[in-house]
Design a protein around this nucleic acid. Structure first.
Lengths: 357, 357
DNA sequence: TTGTATGCGTTATCAA
DNA sequence: TTGATAACGCATACAA
């Protein structure tokens, strides 16, 4: 031990006592472990990080010492020294109502967590519900609290996405707002899915098909509308499209009323989400229309809503958990220095035909 | 400047370059700001932390310097030096299905975030979906990543709760598992709410009242059953109670079928959650029972489910967002060294009478 | 395989 | 009000 050591520790201990305002137990450090095991701090650190070059005798002594002094690593110190945290952030930037109701967000979250867990990364989920949150989260990210970040439900002109670009933090978005082109993304092909489901609606003989669109400021909403339009082709009639800000049941109620008013003979409806479809179905019922007899209707998501509709809702299954997993995989590559070969990944969807169309 | 400074920074720069594996921009430190503004690091730090004793001239120079060199604080270093992070964890420990469906969790999350945001604390939400997660989260907490923690949906014998006790980390639980008595909690009075709603069911003339209980391993589930039992009093018949692990619609379906089989004359049902009630209603319908004519039914939560039932569901409103806010407030006190005067806080609930009973 | 020494970027103490 | 400097606890390059 160098002569300076004891002095060092002694003064440290004193200050620690002074700072110790309450009853939090004092925590052992690598110093204590090294002393106890009669080895150097370097050796302890190497063992802790699973590196080679630790003899069995040293290992035993250290493990014993760790147990004896009750050592646990201090992450802040580790982060500072190693310049990485083994944590990644997941940012959910949504108004409250959406966060609570969107059936996909939870699944994305779980998928991400699962994948990160496999590589022993910690997911920290950051919620933005106000401008103040937004600024604080930006600080948090800039501060090096996480090694990378996944943005769920990014929107156009998202200040956080822009901040991340400036910081140079590895990032992946779920969905791809058009104004952050450099960040890799994972998503589904909303356009094709919408086009295909609408086509099947036509193939089953529907002729006056409307759409209740939503969230046109997001890629998901805009692409679903574009797909619908493409499937309808030349006969497209903009009077048969209504749009609202949110993917909610209320949107379905308002939208369906509007469509019925504009076109009483409507015989098919593509709702931009299952929740919207559920609202629309209730309105159609009250208006005396039978489903799928008079009107065929399809939704999007294959969420809980689809199972609770009467009749059961035909819809598009979106692999939300896989989106999360995939986003996590890409981010891990990024964090480890691998550049992804492609900037965007689209996962396949599947049409689930049930009873409503 | 001391003579040692330039040497120090020069060698630092070299190492930084060596480590800089990719294109992450080099970041300015307090050193750079201090140099640029011709003041000491101490002064810069004081300004950054909003302390007194910074002259206007110094302030101006520093703010200019910060903008010029593009300084942002390094949180890891700040955390290490200050021994606190200004972040608190919120732990959700639930199987996937519950996390996705429980209507309260999201609201608790948002309420917590809102309150913490007011004090500029960052909420980091930690999800436990496996034993591996559990161990990693424990490390994360022990590592000093957060100043405190809120546990949502704590259960009996929760390893995380036990770990937190050992660490001595300030903590609050939402709900109060009986085996972690020392941790303050916030919750609702499930017992009284359940008793009152059941009593009203009786007061409106129901005589054969059953209950579909769930999650008896949690205080919420157990207390709701106890309240029901108390309201029924002497006439309690355990044949009229069924219980299942989850607060889910499937529980309602299975539970109602069982109750109908046991007691065809049943004329009232207390479902332990709205989702359960929704399932039960569907079964009653199919069995040809009218609601509330033949059978009155009430739920718990006042969630989305309640609004989608036909008829609209009478239920108990649980102030989930307030639970989150309150938990956050208590935790902030704890983190700042204030001991709470009481170990438990119960928030009021409200019975919402609609059409189902 | 192990030990030593230095750096990581702050905060906080104390003297000035 | 400011400056100088010692912690904070760990990782790591390099010497041994």
């Amino acid at each position: 031990m160098a002569v300076v050591e004891p002095v060092n520790r002694a003064s440290t201990a004193k200050i620690a006592v002074m700072r110790q305002s309450d009853d939090r137990p004092k925590r052992a450090t690598i110093f204590d472990v090294a002393d106890e095991a009669k080895v150097s701090r370097g050796t302890v650190s190497r063992l802790l990080n699973g590196e080679r070059y630790v003899s069995d005798s040293a290992r035993e002594a250290i493990e014993l010492a760790i147990a004896r002094v009750g050592y646990v690593r201090n992450m802040a110190a580790r982060n500072l020294a190693s310049q990485r945290t083994r944590a990644v952030g997941l940012i959910v930037h949504e108004p409250h109502s959406v966060f609570l109701e969107d059936p996909n967000i939870g699944a994305i979250l779980l998928g991400t967590n699962e994948r990160l867990s496999e590589d022993d990364y910690q997911l920290v989920c950051l919620i933005i519900g106000s401008d103040r949150d937004s600024a604080r989260v930006a600080d948090f990210l800039r501060g090096g609290f996480v090694d990378g970040v996944i943005i769920v439900s990014a929107r156009e002109h998202d200040p956080i996405a822009l901040a991340i670009g400036q910081i140079g933090l590895p990032a992946v978005t779920v969905g791809h707002p058009s104004d952050v082109p450099k960040i890799p993304f994972v998503g589904i092909d909303n356009y094709t899915a919408a086009r295909d489901v609408t086509s099947r609606l036509r193939d089953t003989g529907r002729r006056r098909i409307g759409m209740i669109a939503a969230a046109l400021d997001r890629d998901s909403g805009a692409d679903r509308l574009a797909g619908f339009r493409s499937a309808i082709g030349d006969g497209f009639d903009e009077r048969l499209v209504v749009d609202f800000p949110l993917y909610s049941r209320e949107t379905g109620v308002a939208g369906m009323k509007e469509l019925l008013a504009r076109e009483p003979d409507i015989d098919g409806v593509f709702a931009a989400s299952d929740a919207i479809a559920a609202g629309a179905i209730d309105v159609l019922r009250q208006a005396g229309r039978s489903i799928p007899g008079d009107v065929g209707i399809v939704g999007f998501d294959d969420s809980e809503w689809a199972q609770r509709c009467d009749p059961l809702l035909s819809t598009i299954r979106q692999p939300a958990d896989l989106l999360g997993r995939q986003a996590a995989s890409i981010l891990l590559d990024l964090v480890n220095g691998t550049r992804p070969e492609q900037t965007g990944t689209l996962l396949p969807t599947e049409i689930v035909w049930r009873d409503s169309a």
